[in-house]
Amino acid sequence: MTLLTDLQDGILIITINRAEKMNALNKDVITDLGNALDECLSNPEVKSVIITGSGEKAFVAGADISEFTELDGKGGAALGQRGQDLVFSKIENAHKPIIAAVNGFALGGGCELAMSCHFRIASENAKFGQPEVNLGLIPGYGGTQRLTQLIGKGKAMELILTGDMIGAEEAKNLGLVNHVFPIGSLLDEAKKILTKINGKAPLAVAKSIALVNQAAKCDPNGFANEVTAFGECFDTADKAEGVAAFLEKRKAAFQGK
């Protein structure tokens, strides 16, 4: 199996299970990830998702380079588009929170997979990089765009042009990851964060994800869309429950309605 899945208390853990290949992304992993995402986004029992890699060496050390040897320009473009459609864009635009728990190397497609998630936490041994220039290639799963959005043009340009790796603490300082934890506690810390988020109003969470994504892309309609979505929240049962719970000094019981 290329993936392992475990649903606990509304949190689905998706583990890429190719430790012997440093969890490299091949066609099967992309297909299986796409299917797993479809399932979790349609399953009401899943409130949020963690994506991680098996073992302690790698989150995803890159794409499976052996699949590149026979590809021409049209095939390469199709490969990139397939990954974006099945996995990367689907994660970014998901209405449920999806975070990356980066345990080790996140290089090339692995860094891009982590960046497509709504945010990232990392183990102390994590390493990030986009080394595609060493293969005569460029990032093909959104790396040039998302890395620039996350850490700014200058540093993104340097990392992509040099192919250099950075460690977890530098990644945190740059804003690429939110938190760094010992590898033994990484998943538990991810669960703590998502447990907190899972207690919030699901419709408000989904709208917030969409609007922050728009802001990251400098959408000129972002402010107007926020006003519209803000108004829509007032028509929800969750808003009525949230306000009532606040005034009654009790914990809100949101239903996602």
Rank of each mutant, 00 (worst) to 15 (best):
R250Q: 13
A168R: 07
C233L: 15
G143N: 03
L86K: 05
F246I: 11
A171P: 08
C218K: 15
G76I: 08
G55W: 08
K196R: 10
K47E: 08
H118V: 05
L150G: 10
L86S: 02
V243K: 03
A244F: 10
A77E: 15
N198W: 06
D28L: 13
D6T: 02
F181D: 07
G62Y: 00
V87C: 00
A122R: 05
A101K: 03
L79H: 04
F234P: 07
A77H: 11
C111K: 06
T162M: 07
F234W: 09
G140L: 13
T31N: 15
I138S: 14
S89I: 06
T144H: 12
F181S: 01
L176A: 06
A168K: 01
T31R: 14
A61C: 06
V177N: 11
A122L: 06
F234V: 09
P202M: 03
N221V: 06
E20L: 11
V49A: 07
G108L: 08
G53W: 04
E189F: 10
S185E: 15
G73H: 00
P97Q: 00
V133Q: 14
Q149D: 11
L211D: 05
L12Q: 14
H179V: 07
K192N: 14
A122Q: 02
C117W: 01
A206K: 00
I11H: 08
L147S: 08
E226N: 02
F59H: 04
K251A: 03
A19P: 10
C117Y: 01
G75L: 07
E169F: 04
L79Y: 09
L159P: 09
V227T: 13
E39I: 15
K153T: 15
T148W: 04
A101H: 03
L79A: 07
H95T: 13
E124L: 00
N43M: 14
A78H: 10
G53R: 06
K47A: 05
T15K: 09
A240W: 02
E226V: 14
G142W: 08
I209F: 02
A201R: 08
R18D: 09
K200C: 14
N178M: 11
I98D: 12
A77C: 02
V243Y: 05
L79W: 10
L137Y: 08
E232S: 13
V46F: 08
L4V: 01
S54N: 13
L4P: 08
V180R: 07
L187S: 06
T69D: 13
V205C: 04
M115R: 00
T52L: 04
F128K: 02
N178Q: 14
K90Q: 09
G163Q: 01
Q130M: 15
R146Y: 04
F254R: 04
L194R: 08
A156Y: 06
G140D: 02
G163Y: 04
N17Q: 12
F105E: 12
